[in-house]
Design a protein around this nucleic acid. Sequence first.
RNA 1: GCCGGAGUAGCUCAGUUGGUUGAGAGCACGCGUCUCAUAAGCGCGGGGUCGGCGGUUCGAGUCCGCCCUCCGGCACCA
Length: 583
Amino acid sequence: MFKRAVEEGLDPLAYCDRMEQEFRRTWARLHVSFDDFIRTTEPRHKAGVTELTKRIYDAGDIYEGVYEGWYCVSCEEFKQERDLVHGHCPLHPAIKPEWIREKNYFFRLSKYQRSLLDHFAAHPEFLRPEIRRNEILRLIEGGLVDISVSRAGQSWGIPLPFDPSSVVYVWFDALINYASAVGLGGDPGMNAMFERWWPADLHVIGKDITRFHAVIWPAMLMSAKLPLPRQVFGHGFMTLNGQRMSKTLGTIVDPIDAADRLGLDPLRLYLVKEVSFGGDGDFSWERYDERYNVDLANNLGNLVSRVTAMAGRYCQGRLSATAAGSDRLARLADEVAADYRRAMDALALHEGAAAAYRLIDATNEFIASTAPWTLAKDPGSKSRLEQVLFDGAEAIRLAAVLLQPIMPSSCREILRRVGASANDLRLDRDGRWRTDGERVLVQEGPLWPRYTPKESTTVSDNPLPPAPGTSAPASDRISIDDFMKVELRVAKVLAAERVPKSNRLLKLQVDVGTEERTLVAGIAEAYEPETLIGKTVVVVFNLKPAKLMGVESNGMVLAASPDGGKPTVVTFEAPPPPGTRVR
RNA sequence: GCCGGAGUAGCUCAGUUGGUUGAGAGCACGCGUCUCAUAAGCGCGGGGUCGGCGGUUCGAGUCCGCCCUCCGGCACCA
């Protein structure tokens, strides 16, 4: 973060300000509402971090140790062994990293292995879905190591209360947000708030950060003698056509684009209804269009149209209960509302949406079987007719109440059209079948016109070439001299074999013109060794040797490696002789 | 390679602790039908050796073993 800010020529705080604005804009655009928004730069957060860190320290769970590793002076940060390129920082190949031992504070995570396992056993619902729980359980069972929680000599961060020369390390700091947001460590007023709100009922997080939330965070709280959140829920990711989204492949869907195409609420419904929450969900434009037409245009939208139209035509838009209502519809409605509530409480949002749709479907059937248009022809059936339409309108009202959290603005509009209030909706009060009252319905144009993609303008799901204008800013470009430092040469593959115990690495014997070399390439997933023999490829000739899985590699084969895809080795139409320089 | 997950109709998926599921839903498709409605609605139908092989059992998508394929995580990706 700090580095990124510097790269963009911004003060870290200014950079954060900009990020915050972006987040807020996005949420506003997607109609995502929230009660609070906290950043780690806020005073209340600093207070919370100081308090919690102090408690953990007082519990004897933070001790001084030594952290050692490769340190790049230029980046001003430690580098993992595996991030180094031939022992050098990839960003600053000219400077030799130093092996530095730094005073560091560690959190006794290992001490909490037993307690964590006990907690998981006593509270099976603590971590969901089940898949995450199993993963984390095995991880804990496998043993925990103490973790570094501080960095020395950094300007950015919150100082340790017991040693202000060091700051709290990022994620240790960040997790405490949950507590600091509700007042931990604040003045008496804030503390009262903390007492009231903590522990949290639920943390909803992305599945990739489950470990922090389900292992480290609870251990921190245990150490500080604070209650744990009741549940951590690790949600899945969206894929595109079954593939992981990738920026470099261009296989990414911007929710704003999807919203612009058919409207925001259709997107929100898709995301909720088509994805079983907790698992990954797949998005495709075809399916999106299909669901839009079926769920919204044909079923819900059309239902609103037909009921409001008939009410207008046959009853001047005024309806009140006049006869015995539909028991079947009323019973189903209660059942649906109960299922909905159960599903939503369990975070099975897709089931909640499905429940609402059971009512919508049943209402379409109800209309077909009662045939108001037939009743309308018989003056004697007047009250029966009105009752049927009343029931239809009531079912729509109820469905809209249930779908309201998913499609807020659309449901508000539906409620308006069926003559119901959309203000201060409450599930326990408004989410039940009503048999009385008068409704004034209004008929207006389609809520969701059917969408027919034009052949020629079908949005492609194929990888798009990177848009022009996305190239790196001039300041990030290198000079020709820089490039010339890299010596690329044509090489012919003489022999190839798998590196034992590795499923990505191939060991290649190549002819680089002046000599033969052994090098290792991470392309085994895409190429059988035999198929490479005789091929002419491009290698980086002047790369320092490196050892991979015990094999020394003298050079590197050029290959295109898309995110989430398999590498493709760079070859020639007409192979030049080995040793030819490539530039 | 290790760990985990998944393989059920053309597509997306449900199928609780094994037996009224000797297999279901939605979409797509075919046929029929109403006409209030956004060529929408409603009804009916075709279609699957439930990844493969073997086993346990009176009985297995549902349990066990082996295998195949796909996905995710970790290591490796010069």
